[in-house]
Amino acid sequence: MHITYYGHSCFLVDISGHKLLFDPFISANPNAEHIDIAEINPDFVLISHGHEDHLADAETILKQSGAKLISNFEIVSWYQHKGIDNSHAMNHGGCFDFPFGNLRYVNAVHSSTLPDGNSGGNPGGFVIESERGTFYYSGDTALHYDMKLLLEQYERIDWAALCIGDNFTMGAKDASRCARWLNVKNVLGLHYDTFPPIAIDREQTTRIFNSADIKLHLPEIGETIGLHAQYH
């Protein structure tokens, strides 16, 4: 799979020609000012929860691309009132087969309020299983024991996209523990450096993952990297 990182928790995954954009927060991120969102045309937009730093550009990108929105019931309903009908609502524990593969909406321990004060429902993450491999996106979350269940539900998880910035979410130590629970060797780090409370020391953070024999990927904003299936 090829992953393009757009800053904060926003990344695009290309799965056999299907482009999935997660948590689009780009134009309001000063670190991503060189990214032109008019050039981003995904097939699907996935939103983990209702905070503005995960959906600020979603309406614009959904309307310009015609992409299908995938999120929880409350967030999908909120966007339907904005005229976005190409959508699919889910809730925790549910799975659905999409053209790119099977998607499960899973628990996250966080909060979720939409920019206008409406409820964003319960926050979540996603597990996507496809012919190209299986990966887990944690969304914004604390470390929680439900993460261990994923290896009972899936034969393997090839890589994970995890929040690492601490303060509002897991920090590096908890994220590396999550990766050990999942038995993954490649982690895409998310939700760091955008705001002062989540600034990280990259060398120290990398050492934490290295000590657990896990490769932490911190691509530059706009960079595309490959993360592929690992075979145990």
Rank of each mutant, 00 (worst) to 15 (best):
A212K: 12
I198Q: 12
I40K: 08
F44K: 02
M170F: 00
G124K: 11
G66F: 02
P115I: 12
A38D: 14
V106W: 03
P219F: 03
K173A: 10
A28C: 01
A161M: 09
I128K: 09
H88M: 13
C178N: 00
I47M: 08
D116N: 15
K215V: 02
Y231S: 08
H51M: 15
N41R: 15
A161W: 06
I61N: 11
V13E: 10
Q204L: 13
A89S: 11
E52V: 09
H49I: 00
R180Y: 00
V127C: 12
K185C: 02
R132C: 13
H49D: 14
V76L: 08
A67R: 07
W78F: 15
F209H: 05
L227N: 06
G7V: 00
A67N: 05
T141F: 02
E223S: 04
Y105A: 01
L69P: 07
S77M: 11
L227E: 05
Y79H: 15
I26D: 03
K148M: 14
Y154D: 07
F168W: 15
I35W: 08
L162W: 07
N29G: 03
N167P: 00
H8Y: 15
I47S: 04
G101R: 09
K215D: 02
K63I: 11
K68Y: 05
H2C: 01
N167E: 10
S87G: 01
G133S: 09
R180T: 14
G133W: 07
Y145N: 05
A172S: 11
Q64A: 13
E39W: 01
E223R: 09
H88N: 10
E203N: 04
L114T: 05
E74M: 10
N118K: 15
L227C: 07
I47T: 05
K173I: 09
S211M: 14
P197A: 11
L21Y: 11
M90G: 01
M170V: 00
V127F: 11
F44A: 02
I200K: 02
G7E: 08
E152P: 00
D146A: 13
G94D: 12
Q230F: 02
H191W: 03
F135C: 11
I198E: 14
W159M: 01
L103W: 05
H110M: 07
E223M: 06
A161D: 11
G125A: 07
S211D: 15
W181R: 03
K173G: 00
Y5L: 08
H232I: 01
H54K: 12
S77V: 03
D193T: 01
S77G: 08
G171D: 12
I3A: 08
L20S: 06
A199C: 08
I164S: 12
H217V: 04
F126Y: 15
P197Y: 10
T194K: 10
A142H: 05
L218K: 08
C178S: 11
L190F: 06
